[in-house]
Nucleic acid binder design. Structure first.
Lengths: 223, 223
DNA sequence: TAGATTGTTAATCGATTAACAATC
DNA sequence: TAGATTGTTAATCGATTAACAATC
């Protein structure tokens, strides 16, 4: 576990360390790029160089995801890509709802290439009547009261939470009570969920925090 | 170091572990929320409960950021918030450029509350003539050829890189050659930069990777 | 064959967690 | 005073890195 709560020890526990899981998407992107350039075979050294990772780490990560290579030759680029994509579940797109059409929610709704990453947002919800109606890319924003009904009817299993921290737990409860089993949570708060529900917290400003604290430190000492 | 390259060992090395730096923004958000509710004093236990962190970890993180509390009493909420904000450099807003107005760049441009996090995007650049002109929130999109000139004139020190991986290194070089000393890189590629430049790589889909791989695993075994 | 690479086990490193004295 | 909390040192845990045999 990287940080935040993980009430989710039971399910999804294939024993693979979370840092590894977090690196897999980067490998996918590199592989897609290299495959596009016509590279048939690829080594861990090469992948590592592209991303600045240690080659041994790359090899271990790939092994954990079930990839098999051949000594001296490396991995078949295409096959490796498909193995990872399949492992991530990105080969078939899951439909998702987004709740909370504020700044962040709007940004996410505007970001179309999600379906490359296994997710398609098919409906959005907000408690503010001003926000209702058709939104970017044809996604409709519904009143939040209709959330349970639509979740059930469309059998949606992924929920994206972009509401303020105060509202997060209650919306989360509504989601899990109506069939959602995976929540991508952007609220800076620990959600409590039933044991079989997967919660991933997104620390949107974590990286920005590192960048700006380093910059602040550099400015203090340096110039 | 969490992952990716870090050619930046020299500067910004105040010895504070990166995981700690990544958690500071979450503390800020919680503190703002609690202060808003009128809470004058706050303990590590309380902060930890909100975020699902271990109290000892919270205490250690706060100490590293220079916060001082009082036994039995805890920390003064307001003071603690200001200490962290100051440590992160979020009390004075740095102006920044964004290069690459694609899906992601657009989403970031549309996200106004950045100035709360120490950054204000004041200009954007793209190599595609179609993208030029006024953009969301009054930010102008300039042709990429004007990047060096504007960087120098406005003395900008933060660059946000949202171009495709292939273009990332050359744009990065252009930035560092014209005064940028901190780069927030969204391209899945290792940038090489002069020793005094800070690079932070954002793995936008890392969390989504964890979520979907866990979901895929759950669906395989479960239902 | 020689060199490069995989796969895997062992060693190192660092972060998290536990323990506990000091304090209000 | 008793209980809660900070601050800090020690123990644990886990991830990264190094080493090396096996392989093509």
């Amino acid at each position: 576990m990287q940080n935040r709560t993980d009430t989710t020890r039971t399910i999804g526990e294939h024993g693979i360390p979370e840092p590894t899981l977090r690196r897999l998407p980067a490998y996918c992107q590199v592989l897609r790029r290299l495959a596009g350039r016509g590279l048939k075979q690829v080594s861990c050294t090469r992948i590592g160089r592209e991303l600045g990772f240690d080659p041994t780490q790359v090899r271990k990560d790939l092994a954990l995801a079930g990839a098999v290579g051949r000594p001296k030759v490396g991995y078949c680029t295409e096959e490796l890509y498909r193995t990872l994509e399949n492992f991530l579940g990105w080969n078939n797109v899951e439909e998702a709802v987004l709740v909370g059409v504020g700044h962040l929610g709007t940004a996410l709704l505007g970001y179309t290439p999600f379906d490359r990453y296994g997710v398609r947002i098919v409906a959005a919800f907000d408690s503010d009547p001003e926000k209702l109606g058709p939104h970017a890319h044809g996604v409709q924003v519904f009143p939040q009261t209709r959330l349970p009904e639509l979740l059930r009817r469309m059998k949606l299993r992924i929920g994206i939470l972009t509401v303020p921290a105060e509202a997060a737990q209650s919306v989360c409860d509504l989601m899990t009570a109506n069939g959602v089993i995976a929540i991508w949570n952007f609220a800076p708060i620990a959600l409590s969920v039933p044991a079989n529900v997967i919660v991933q917290n997104e620390d949107l400003f974590a990286t920005l925090g590192v960048l700006s604290s380093k910059l602040a430190a550099a400015l203090r000492t340096g110039s």
